[in-house]
Design a binder for these strands. Structure first.
Length: 697
DNA sequence: GCAAGGTC
């Protein structure tokens, strides 16, 4: 007789078994690994699932019918992740079913979180014959020997509320996501003139993520650059140049900037204040999935999805720990010294690893985030044989691990105020006094190290020769577009999606052609189709494109978990609200479809700042500028301030502006301005254009 | 050809 222990994945089964004692591995039917181990006089067979083996299926199987509200749990079928998933799940289910027959008791040892509770629940209920409530739960926060033993010594009743909350989460996501996606796709079909089908989708995570990109794109398109002026000055002391900027970083009036320039040109400065400040920079915290994805993007421009795929490979080759983790913690049980000894045997890391080993006391600088089943990502210490991007990602992980143990770095910042005719200019010096952890993180810490600026030694009252004062006209910039990495960070911040799925969701939005690489300036831009989907959802099912749905769902599921709410009531309430949204789609399906359809076909408006060369002075460029006095937008020449070019023209105050490729015969640019729904008006910018003619676009 | 969530 034995107790069957059900784990979430093969790797966890191996670790749990070996934590309990000396385990013997064998192959069960379908060749999945099973570990026999005796612990405290009891025989255990430790087996595992491979993530979710069961999922929700639509009983009707007809993908053109909605709403689908009648769902059941069944072995997963081959989905979008490719063929073979169903066969793999069947292999695990068959093997576990056989093992269950000989078991007299069951332990649920999947990851101790909501999703893990569901994975174990399904297996114990469906593969083991309704054993969930009779099973006992092993609760651990990381899979270390001590914690696993502790969990088996203090087995608890299964958390039925948690399982119900998780199962309801699956239900709600399916009901909202599948139904609204079907409604979208079918309204597109109804509204398009060729009756074509287009695979459209929306969901609790896709929706808000797309809305982030669309809202940002709108901000960018609506941005009107405001002019401002920047003053800077170069001084000299003992042959060394001191670069300084005017104390006000932006001067919004040209007259004011001119006045300061005139007052300061050719006049020497006097040092009026010198202050130095030590800044201590703690070592970085170890990587969780998102941290690694962001850093790999910053340094190598790798997409989050690609980084995770590479990390997955490194993990499968036993070079790094499990890469899907929220944790920023490295418990001592991973054995720092052992890992460092391993790294000391790799020539690239031997010097830093030995340095750390010689210190004796090793304390990593941990971050606040934790994960129920895994520590932060760390190298195992096994010598890697890698090249290309795999090497880069490994190197980043290894050096980050080393840096985590490094001393705080100490930098010094010097601020100098320079008085020129009662105008204050500021110069700033930075120096690294002690590099500490930075030495372990080279070259990845370089942006911090390279901020070094050397100033000559300066004292209050020193007189500095004024070499030059310059005035530069600049324009306020629109906000940055999201990159894949910053969009992922935004999702983390808004608490939507999970460490393992965020990159996938972004990839889905690309696949649907809701977002695309921006034509200029890098980053992601929402496409017209993306805008149209957000717009129609905001009108008919607004919660799906808002993070509010996640928040509301979590509130309700919290009630289910605590046993205060019935899952059926929570789902019924959601269905009632969903059905209202779907009613609008039924009534206005064709109209919605036409809107989305025409958006999908329409060209992208350009982001316009410069609209063409100046036909008057022939030197400057015509730009869209917002007047400081009237707050209205107009066209002005960039050569206005420096060259006195007075070329200007009024603009309509509403509607997106695009520039035509052709210039008017009078030499001025032709623009098209959006008005109404999808209509544009083409016109020459020149007020006195002798060829003025309006063209419908 | 539909979600989001596991894992490979």
């Amino acid at each position: 007789m034995y107790t069957l222990v059900v784990c979430e994945k093969p790797d966890a089964a191996r670790r749990i078994a070996s934590a309990l004692g000396s385990a013997r591995e064998s192959r069960a039917a379908g060749s999945i690994s099973v570990f026999d181990v005796t612990y405290a006089g009891r025989n255990y067979k430790v087996c595992s699932a491979s993530g979710h083996l069961y999922g929700l299926v639509d009983r009707t199987k007809n993908r053109s019918v909605y709403p689908v509200l009648d769902l059941e749990w069944a072995p997963i079928d081959d989905g979008k992740k490719g063929k073979g998933a169903a066969a793999r799940a069947a292999r695990f289910i068959n093997a576990i079913s056989l093992l269950a027959r000989g078991a007299d008791s069951f332990i649920h040892a999947c990851d101790y979180d909501q999703e893990g509770e569901v994975i174990g629940h399904s297996i114990l209920q469906y593969a083991c014959g309704g054993k969930y409530e009779k099973s006992l739960r092993a609760k651990f926060s990381t899979l270390t020997d001590d914690e696993v033993k502790e969990a088996f010594a203090t087995l608890a009743k299964p958390s039925k509320g948690l399982a119900e909350a998780g199962r309801s989460r699956h239900m709600l996501d399916f009901i909202y996501g599948v139904n609204l996606s079907r409604a979208l796709a079918q309204s597109f079909k109804a509204g398009s003139n060729n009756n074509g089908y287009r695979n459209l989708s929306i969901g609790r995570v896709q929706g808000p993520t797309l809305a982030f990109a669309a809202d940002r794109e709108l901000e960018i398109r609506l941005h009107v650059p405001d002019p401002y002026w920047v003053l800077s000055a170069d001084f000299e002391k003992d042959g060394q140049v001191v670069r300084a900027r005017y104390e006000k970083p932006r001067i919004e009036k040209l007259a004011e900037a001119r006045a300061i320039l005139d007052a300061c040109i050719g006049r020497d400065g006097a040092v009026s204040k010198v202050s130095t400040k030590k800044v201590v920079l703690r070592s970085p915290t170890p990587f969780n999935t998102g941290d690694l994805q962001r850093e790999a993007y910053r340094l190598f421009r790798l997409s989050p999805g690609y980084t995770l795929a590479i990390a997955e490979k490194l993990y499968l080759r036993a070079l790094i720990s499990y890469p899907r983790t929220s944790s920023q913690k490295l418990p001592p049980s991973i054995n720092y010294a052992k890992i460092l000894s391993g790294l000391a045997g790799v020539s690239l890391y031997s010097q830093p690893a030995s340095t750390l080993l010689s210190r004796g006391r090793l304390v990593p600088n941990e971050g606040p985030m934790a994960d129920p089943a895994h520590p932060a990502i760390y190298p195992t210490g096994i010598a890697p044989r890698l090249s290309g991007l795999e090497f880069k990602v490994y190197d980043l992980i290894a050096k980050r691990f080393l840096a985590t143990f490094g001393d705080p770095a100490v930098t010094e910042r010097t601020d100098v105020s320079i008085n020129v005719n009662n105008h204050i200019f500021l110069a700033e010096g930075r120096a690294v006094l002690y590099d500490g952890w930075m030495a372990f993180y080279r070259p990845y810490a370089s942006s911090l190290e390279q901020s070094t600026t050397v100033l000559p030694v300066l004292h209050e009252g020193d007189v500095l020769a004024n070499k030059q004062v310059t005035m530069e006209e600049k324009f306020t910039q629109p906000p940055w577009r999201y990159s894949q990495a910053s969009l992922l960070a935004k999702m983390e911040e808004e608490k939507i999606g999970t460490k393992a799925t965020r990159a996938d969701t972004i990839a889905t939005l690309f696949k649907r052609n809701y977002i695309a690489a921006a034509k200029r300036g890098g980053g992601i831009e929402a496409t017209d189709l993306g805008f149209a989907v957000v717009e129609s959802m905001r009108e008919h099912a607004p919660t799906i494109v808002s993070t509010e749905l996640t928040r509301l769902m979590e509130e309700q599921l919290e009630g289910v978990e605590q046993g205060m709410k019935e899952p059926a009531d929570v789902i019924e309430y959601a269905v009632e609200r969903l059905v209202e949204s779907l009613a609008a789609f039924r009534e206005q399906g064709a109209t919605i479809g036409r809107q989305i359809g025409s958006a999908a076909a329409a060209a992208q408006p350009n982001v316009v700042v410069i609209i063409g060369g100046c036909p008057v002075c022939k030197k400057g460029q015509l730009r869209i500028i917002k007047s400081r006095t009237t707050k209205k937008r107009f066209v002005g020449c960039s050569n206005y301030a420096s060259g006195g070019c007075r070329a200007s023209a009024p603009l309509p105050q509403k509607g997106g502006i695009r520039v035509s490729k052709t210039t008017c015969r009078c030499g001025w640019p032709i623009i098209s301005v959006a008005f109404g729904r999808g209509k544009r008006w083409n016109t020459c910018v020149n007020m006195q254009c002798p060829y003025k003619e309006e063209k419908k676009g």
